[in-house]
Every structure is written in structure tokens, then in C-alpha cells.
């Protein structure tokens, strides 16, 4: 691919990156950092290409090291992000030790709104 086409794509990707991320709420900043971190693990594709072309054993060894590192980045990144987000989803779950927090919560919500009207 020629240089200008790559430059065009790069510049557009910068703007997409800014736009997509500027709306993320601060609640999700940590999962965002972790998710973006997983995405750059896609360097694995580059590491695989280089390893696939290697004929010298030393080159292959270094390329395979790159494959190991990149896979760790990619797989670990997505797994740890998923674990974080799983907790966000499970927020309304009943807490094991303390009975029925949902009911308690609803009750305190109600008293809270009364207080708000005062």
C-alpha cells in the first residue's frame, strides 16, 4: 500500500480514536485503559508474520519470543477486562452475607427521595 493511503488511514484513525474515547464516562476509565491495552496486543499479527518468514534459528527464536509476549498481551488483556466488566454487570446481585440488600436498598431509596422533597 502506498504512503499517502497509509497516511490517510492513520489520520482518520486518530480522529476515530479521539471521538470514540472522549465520550467514555470516568466510571469506565479503568476498563477502557485495560481494553485499549488488549487491543494493541494485535501486534501478535506482526509477530506471526515475522516468525513465519524466519529461516535463521536465532531470528525464529526472537520472533517466537515476540509471539509469546504479544499473545500474553492480547489474551490476558481481554480476559482481565472481561473480569472487570463482569463485576459491573453483577451489581444488582444479592450480597451473600447480608440477607436482602435489594429490599433494603429499595426502602432506603424511598426514604431518600422523601428527604429530597423536604
Amino acid at each position: 500500500m502506498d504512503g499517502i493511503a497509509l497516511l490517510t488511514i492513520t489520520v482518520l484513525a486518530v480522529f476515530v480514536g479521539f471521538e470514540v474515547v472522549s465520550k467514555v464516562s470516568s466510571t469506565l476509565h479503568t476498563p477502557l485503559m485495560s481494553g485499549a491495552n488488549a487491543i494493541h496486543g494485535i501486534i501478535l499479527v506482526g509477530a506471526i508474520i515475522v516468525a513465519g518468514q524466519a529461516s535463521d534459528p536465532w531470528v525464529l527464536a526472537v520472533a517466537l519470543l515476540a509471539v509469546v509476549l504479544a499473545t500474553a498481551n492480547l489474551v490476558g488483556g481481554f480476559v482481565v477486562t472481561d473480569r472487570m466488566l463482569e463485576m459491573f454487570r453483577g451489581r444488582k446481585r444479592v450480597a451473600p452475607p447480608a440477607g436482602k440488600p435489594d429490599a433494603i436498598k429499595a426502602e432506603s431509596r424511598a426514604s431518600g427521595s422523601k428527604e429530597g422533597m423536604r
Partner: peptide
């Protein structure tokens, strides 16, 4: 990662790396 995409002529690496570079900067 984006510049390694330029080296390998791989558009996906360019786009993914640039996305992370831009979002990381904002964050």
C-alpha cells in the same frame, strides 16, 4: 504498534495501534 504496521505494510496494525495511541493520549 501503529508504526510496526507501517513497517510491515499491515493496515490493521496501523489502525489498531493508532486507535490505542489516540485513546491513551485522551485518557
Amino acid at each position: 504498534v501503529a508504526t510496526s504496521g507501517l513497517v510491515l505494510g499491515n493496515v490493521l496494525l496501523v489502525v489498531a495501534g493508532t486507535l490505542v495511541g489516540a485513546s491513551g493520549t485522551i485518557l
